[in-house]
Design a protein around this nucleic acid. Sequence first.
DNA 1: CAGTGCATCGAGTTCTAG
DNA 2: CTAGAACTCGATGCACTG
Length: 433
Amino acid sequence: MFHQQDHLKSQLQESHPASRQLFHCQECGKQYNTQLGYRRHLVAAHSATAGLPCPEGASSLLEHLGSHIDRAPPPEGNANAAVPVRERKYSCERCDRRFYTRKDVRRHAVVHTGRRDFLCPRCAQRFGRRDHLTRHLKKSHAQESGLMPPCTPSTPVATPTPASKCAVKEEPSSVTSEMGSGSKEPMETYSRDMYNSYPMANPVPGLGHPHGLMQGSLSSSMGVGRHINPQSSHPHHHHLQPPVAPQQQPYSNMARYQHGSTSYPRADVDSFLLELQSAPLPHPSVANSSTSTSASPQREMLGEGVSSGGESHLLSRSPAVSSTEVSCTTNMDLGHLLGFLPFSLPPYSPHMGMGGLVMSYPPAATTTTTSSPSSSTGLSSQAPGPFTFFQPPQAHVPQGPGAHNHSQLPQAYSSPAVSSPSSLPHYYQAFQQ
DNA sequence: CAGTGCATCGAGTTCTAG
DNA sequence: CTAGAACTCGATGCACTG
């Protein structure tokens, strides 16, 4: 949603590479998508202020500072002699980045896996790391409790289920204060299960049954799946219920989050959501197939063997979508919603209901499939239902007719190719290929 | 040593004043 | 329409804790 036409215009320009203008720094060759970024870089790196004279001849202060990185310490006797020698001796296997410690490398792995296992219970935004979520909560939701009394019927909450309403800590102080190192409870509340190989299955307390990918994520912001009785295999419960629009906008400042920095083409996302809402919930057998198949560890990491193009069909609009749903959809943080999509899956865990769905996606999740007709993916036709949308995009896997046709259920859900010990922490699992 | 959280920086996005 | 501020998130470095 754009408040001004020019915003939409600029957004379109920036979202569509075809028409995007790149700003190149003549001095260092860096590229920027926006003029602002480019100019900011100029100021930071190449301006007069940035170019404070360096005693060692560096062209700018930043460059000079950078030159000190990894530099051996001065000889003893020097004032800085106490500084220990440090070198980045731990390198990432997927890129050339190097780090000082191994745990930094592990944490860095999230960059490659694209996993976002930490769900914000308030706005449904997802983060790859706990501290990111913590920061997000502190900065974006610390003041919300004052605006939204806890668990009052008149106070719609993003997560429609009553349990979820109460689960979300409404007092800002509680959220903020408990975010500190003193108490890990809130964070564990959001994602404690990740350390049990149960990531995001039910990261938010009260969001419902642990089985609920839909319960815990999609449901929280879309109202999708909240009617699912995860414990019930009743085949008649797989129809989407019309989302309750007011519940999608529980916060006065939600509008801000709607414009999250995730730069997905709004039209595509909107279409996606329309399709998602109009599509029936997966038949229990489908869901169970994920579950049952996941009984044998089968997760394939992102971009590593999973068939592609699963979500292209999402762009086809469904006439079944009511105006209410449309407005609801457009009022939601689409970027965040995309974050719900479990484009990567966690290793199997006995605790996982829906096959231990993990919501994760690569940066190009929504940018790679805007033109393919739905028919291009047998997936959509053979495995109808929202879960077919969760086909991991193949940013790194060649797509097209030549690509292996995983036209059945998303292979990420059913392929037994990869076995991951369920006892490993997330970051370790992320490394497993 | 691993896990975690905080500080910080870089960059993208949104908003708003002129 | 544009420029800039403000906001937010991704990522890294590092200190703290068990």
